[in-house]
């Protein structure tokens, strides 16, 4: 499964890449903001994008909505330190395919969210 990370925290990008690669994901790239994420989505055509809710140049919801329109085949999962109970529905109503709290991040967790 080819995955693209979008998060402004370099540490998270580095650690999440290692964790997800250890769980069998092919992390094909990472972006620090929405603009770069959108560009790489076009270039790399990932199966899954893990997008932080708070990005420097746009909200993760806005990026998810745009990805839904421009790359409908890509599964978009939002992530944050917020709780799943609060954000799951909000993420889905924005056009994302689900919400994964960062403290629960794992390959298995992503597998359950990818349809």
């Amino acid at each position: 499964m080819r995955l693209l990370l979008v998060d402004d925290d370099a540490n998270f990008r580095r650690l999440a890449r290692r964790l997800l690669e250890a769980d069998g994901y092919d992390v094909v790239g990472s972006a620090r903001d929405a603009t770069e994420g959108l560009r790489l989505a076009g270039e790399l055509a990932p199966d899954v994008m893990l997008v932080d809710v708070n990005l420097p140049d746009a909200s993760g919801f806005e990026l998810a909505a745009r990805l839904g329109r421009e790359h409908p085949g890509t599964t978009v999962l939002l992530t944050s330190t917020y709780s799943r109970g609060d954000f799951e529905q909000l993420a889905r109503s924005a056009g994302a395919d689900g919400f994964v709290p960062k403290d629960e991040l794992s390959g298995a967790e992503l597998d359950r969210r990818i349809t």
Partner: peptide
């Protein structure tokens, strides 16, 4: 954010 990263590090 730091705790989330620490969690990933520990799981790694």
């Amino acid at each position: 954010t730091r705790l989330a990263n620490l969690g990933i590090l520990l799981r790694l």
